[in-house]
Design a protein around this nucleic acid. Sequence first.
DNA 1: TCAATTTATATCGTTCACGATGCAAAAATA
DNA 2: TATTTTTGCATCGTGAACGATATAAATTGA
Lengths: 147, 147
Amino acid sequence: MAYEQLKLDNQLCFRLYTAARLTMGAYHPYLDPLGITYPQYLVLLVLWEQDKQPVNDIAHKLYLETNTVTPLLQRMEKAGLVKRTKGKEDTRQRIVSLTKKGINMREQAKHVPECLSADIIKNEGSVEEIAQMISTLDKLIEGLKQQ
Amino acid sequence: MAYEQLKLDNQLCFRLYTAARLTMGAYHPYLDPLGITYPQYLVLLVLWEQDKQPVNDIAHKLYLETNTVTPLLQRMEKAGLVKRTKGKEDTRQRIVSLTKKGINMREQAKHVPECLSADIIKNEGSVEEIAQMISTLDKLIEGLKQQ
DNA sequence: TCAATTTATATCGTTCACGATGCAAAAATA
DNA sequence: TATTTTTGCATCGTGAACGATATAAATTGA
């Protein structure tokens, strides 16, 4: 019966979609006090690893389009977390750099990953299963990345 | 070094978030011709399993809030896929039912799951790994569902 | 060198997602 | 029964995502 496949329970994507939303929701207790959203936190993670990057590099590392990242960065600039300056060699580029506030937030967010890990492990139990899933997700993402 | 944990690579949520977006993107070639989005497809899956459900039941099955589902259903009604009628016993309820167009779309969407499975398996390889991941995702979702 | 093409970013429009709030109907309770 | 509380849905505002389109700067190539 082909219709069997149309059942919600059978679908991988639905679980990814749901798990992603619920996991992002689990960040709320830790990110709300900092006044940032999860996508903004991702941008900060990228900039904490390496400051002063063009929009394109940030978008690429997050697998996002620049038309998603540009407004995101504009909001973050308005919030005083980043600065966006014209590129020196290539004036088409916008170099995004951390402000003092953006730099300081790294210290305030230091414990977020541990808190999340604790929340997830507490709920799920097996560290090995999570590790295995991360590996499978990486392969899935790698495959889907190139259309 | 606590900062090590702040690295993007270490994060489960980032992978779920990315995999979910890319997987939803993989539905585009199959859903665009039908004129529906992925969340709309999810609503149809729910209604194909059982027609005539109140907004709340649909939202619950998709782990979404009613304030997400209501506008979604309004757009689907405008597109002629569903009808929304006042509940008989409980007049607060809105009973959502499929139109002819909504019913017929089941046949047109019959092969979508196979196509997606093929795309994913082709890219990833191991069916067992996907099955294992689905099981882990279910536990993760179950744990996160109750805050 | 000058036109054609590509690249980096921005803008626009539509659809989600969700917290906060509103409102009427139902249920609970005094 | 009258009042309070809860429930079901809707509306509003904000922040993503992303396809389509625009624009200026850089690159390519004739």
